[in-house]
Write a protein that binds this DNA or RNA. Structure first.
Length: 428
RNA sequence: GCGGGUGUCGCCAAGUGGUUAAGGCAGCGGCUUGUGGUGCCGCCAUCCGGGGGUUCGAAUCCCCUCAUCCGCCCCA
């Protein structure tokens, strides 16, 4: 079609969808409020260098997925592909880190230049949290439980929390050397992708989906065995806390995650309702990132949750359980009064009357046509409103209004405006 | 970047070489010129994603292209 349309992977959210989004966002906001988080909003556009240095040059995100361009001043700019780097940059730039530790949340669009598929778009939306300046295993468990409880509260079932420890930088360097040595002895048995990755990002080979490679990797050295004693102890403390909180998890030694800044705890929450892109929420600890970006040594942990995927899961949950909490989030827009009006004076009055009802907090639709009463009633009925308020020439003469319940059998009654407003407020 | 599927009205959808491209939903108008939810009637694609070709003749066959969906890679 030659009609103007949105760019590939850029998706419009129509009213039916935005209602759900608002409901989900409201639940998330409430969880963040109760957990004492503050919101931070950062620009969508940053210097490319921020992501290159923060996320890692060797990652897929930086290597092939960024929306990067030169601005009019020849500076390389990039539409943010994720939130953490920007949040850390903003915290550093404004001295937040020297005001003590920070618990922040953010939300908004992210951009990754990829082929769209189920659960993946080029512009997508995340909400995420970042705990800056927290090092204890307790903060890991707190962050994870925040995500877990939020998802549970939304009525989503069948979620799986997978968790792993990537240890310290030293642990990983030691392990990487060990792994590369071992893999080089078996290069010929690796799939093509993994062979290429041997030079660029060997840890990611552990995550390969190739069946033969996976079989081979069963014999490979494991990260867990390469972890230092302290790292293991720390990880065990996190797991013990999850046990205490009764949050079920599954150890996944292959979970490496694609962003360089993660260390120690790394986790993902997945759903079986999503097809190939099953991760709803992913995160982990990034104790080295802030220093790497030129800030003070600051331990931190965070996660990000994909809104589009979350909404997909919620829709599935709503279908499975039409009376459950997920279904309530998808409810239709609640309209209370539909104002039917016809005639010159009546139409003027109707606008003022609708305004009065709206001022009292009611959701009011005003029929904007001068169609027959029959037509307007038909529309009122379809609007889903509970009440019809009728103002025609007869009512206009005495500044009155007739109220008729649209559901059930109730009688139609005539009131002056003030009594009508009071009456409707009592009916809510 | 690489596989595979799909593209007929706002939405769903029949039609698979032959004069006017079914039907349903939604929308609009009417029966009912001050009262809805049911019913009935009417209107609503000179056109089948776009371009080229084959043919007396194509939405239906071929080629190219675009879009979209699903998958790979990777991630939210």
């Amino acid at each position: 079609m030659s009609q103007l349309q949105s760019l590939r992977g850029m998706v419009d959210l129509l009213p039916e969808q935005t209602r759900r989004w608002q409901a989900v966002e409201a639940v998330a906001l409430e969880h963040f409020r109760c957990a004492g988080l503050d919101e931070i909003r950062t620009p969508l556009l940053e210097f490319t260098e921020l992501f290159a240095r923060g996320i890692g040059e060797g990652t897929d995100v930086v290597g092939k997925e960024m929306y990067t361009f030169l601005d009019r001043g020849e500076r390389s700019c990039t539409l943010r592909p994720e939130g953490t780097a920007s949040v850390v940059r903003a915290a550093m730039q404004h001295g937040l880190l020297s005001q003590g530790s920070q618990k922040l949340w953010y939300g908004g669009p992210m951009f990754r230049y990829e082929r769209p598929q189920a659960g993946r778009q080029r512009q997508f939306h995340q909400i995420g949290v970042e705990f800056l300046g927290f090092c204890s295993p307790r903060s890991d468990a707190e962050a994870i439980s925040l995500a877990w409880d939020l998802l549970s509260d939304l009525g989503i079932k069948g979620l799986k929390l997978e968790i792993n420890s990537l240890g310290t930088v030293e642990d990983r360097n030691r392990f990487r050397a060990e792994l590369v040595t071992w893999l080089e002895e078996h290069v010929d048995q690796l799939d093509a992708d993994s062979q290429a990755r041997l030079a660029t990002n060997p840890l990611r080979i552990l995550d390969s989906k190739d069946r033969d490679t996976q079989l081979l990797l069963k014999e490979a050295p494991t990260l867990m065995k390469a972890l230092s004693k302290d790292s293991v102890t720390r990880f065990e403390e996190v797991l013990a806390l999850l046990n205490t909180l009764q949050i079920p998890y599954q150890l996944n030694p292959r979970l490496v995650r694609g962003l360089d800044y993660y260390g120690h705890t790394a986790f993902e929450i997945t759903s079986d309702q999503l097809g190939a892109q099953a991760t709803v929420c992913g995160g982990g600890r990034y104790d080295g990132l802030i220093q790497q970006l030129g800030g003070p040594v600051t331990p931190a942990i965070g996660w990000a949750l994909g809104m589009e995927r979350l909404l997909l899961v919620i829709s599935a949950a709503a279908q499975a359980d039409p009376d459950g909490p997920a279904a309530r989030l998808t409810a239709a827009k609640p309209l209370f009064v539909y104002v039917i009006n016809r005639g010159e004076q009546a139409e003027l009055q109707a606008l003022a009357f609708a305004r009065q009802l709206r001022g009292a907090g009611m959701a009011v639709e005003l029929d904007g046509t001068s169609a027959s009463f029959g037509k307007q009633f038909k529309r009122a009925d379809r609007s889903g409103a509970q009440w019809a308020a009728v103002i025609g020439d007869e009512e206009a003469k005495t500044r009155q209004v007739r109220l008729k319940p649209l559901l059930g059998e109730g009688e139609e009654c005539q009131f002056n405006w003030q009594d009508a407003t009071t009456y409707l407020m009592e009916q809510r």
